[in-house]
């Protein structure tokens, strides 16, 4: 099977060749350079995300979390994700193909978020009861003062993260990690990094397993749709629980 060409002498080579049989040029050296470039891209993507998150927390604290600052920072986040994804759009676009009629998988995609969201709520309650120093983790509370608070929270908590976090982590980041490691390692690494950017370290306990599920669906069905459905329903249920809790406390 002839699949690659030596860049030095132009000889056609077997796909498994590590050296050119005619001039001795090392073929695999390019993949080493490619690996380093991929690692640099991953680090840059993460550093940009972290800088963005710190800036957004600092600025929004100063602006007292107005709806305008919320929209501005959400817009910047979307822009960052789209700009990074643009460099990998050919591979990412393939992930938006609607999956075939897979009734079991669709059923699972609707059922899993019920288990995950109630587990998350249970863990958060448990952690909140452990200490008084924890800042309130009620997601709805940040939006409660706005007019049409539930609708705004619905867009910012359930809809946008499901679309753009999936694109960022199961799309762009997953594709990069896949280039330098196995699928299994990629799922673990994506889930871990996804959990890390959600900041409070304790959230790793519940976001990491959730990320593993999302990563598994991405790997198995090569689509972002299942991930987006699971992520959307999960966030929506957590929001509704928080909305209920907030009103009970009020």
């Amino acid at each position: 099977m002839i699949d690659i060409t030596c860049k030095n002498c132009g000889k056609n080579l077997d796909v498994n060749s590590r050296f050119c049989s005619s001039c001795g040029n090392q073929i695999s050296k390019n993949s080493e350079i490619g690996k380093e470039l991929t690692i640099s891209k991953i680090i840059w993507f993460y550093v940009v995300m972290i800088i963005f998150l710190i800036t957004s927390v600092f600025t929004q604290e100063k602006l007292d979390y107005s709806i305008y600052s919320e929209i501005t920072f959400e817009f910047i986040f979307i822009l960052i994700v789209l700009l990074f994804s643009l460099s990998n759009y050919k591979e990412i676009i393939q992930l938006y193909r609607i999956p075939k009629k897979r009734y079991i998988q669709y059923t699972l995609a609707f059922l899993i978020p019920f288990v995950s969201s109630f587990s998350v709520s249970f863990f958060i309650d448990l952690v909140e009861n452990l200490s008084d120093s924890l800042i309130s983790t009620n997601m709805y509370a940040d939006y409660a003062s706005y007019k049409y608070s539930l609708s705004i929270a619905f867009v910012f908590i359930a809809v946008l993260p499901a679309i753009f976090e999936e694109l960022a982590f199961r799309g762009y980041l997953y594709n990069l990690l896949k280039k330098i490691s196995s699928e299994k390692t990629t799922i673990i690494a994506t889930a871990f990094i996804f959990a890390l950017v959600h900041f409070p370290f304790l959230s790793l306990i519940w976001i990491f397993p959730f990320g593993l599920i999302l990563g598994y669906f991405r790997m198995k069905y090569k689509t972002l749709w299942f991930g987006m459905i699971i992520h959307f329903i999960h966030n929506l249920i957590v929001l509704l629980i928080d909305f209920y809790d907030y009103n009970q406390l009020s």
Binding site: I39, I42, I43, Y46, V47, I50, L53, I54, V57, F58, L177, I180, S181, T185, I188, A189, F192, I193, L196, V197, F199, P200, F201
Partner: peptide, 21 residues
């Protein structure tokens, strides 16, 4: 090694970031 150290680095960067907040 590559993946474990990469995650370790990202975790360390996150720790610095969270502490800075």
């Amino acid at each position: 090694p590559m993946m474990a150290l990469l995650i370790g680095l990202l975790l360390y960067i996150t720790t610095i970031a969270i502490t800075a907040i």
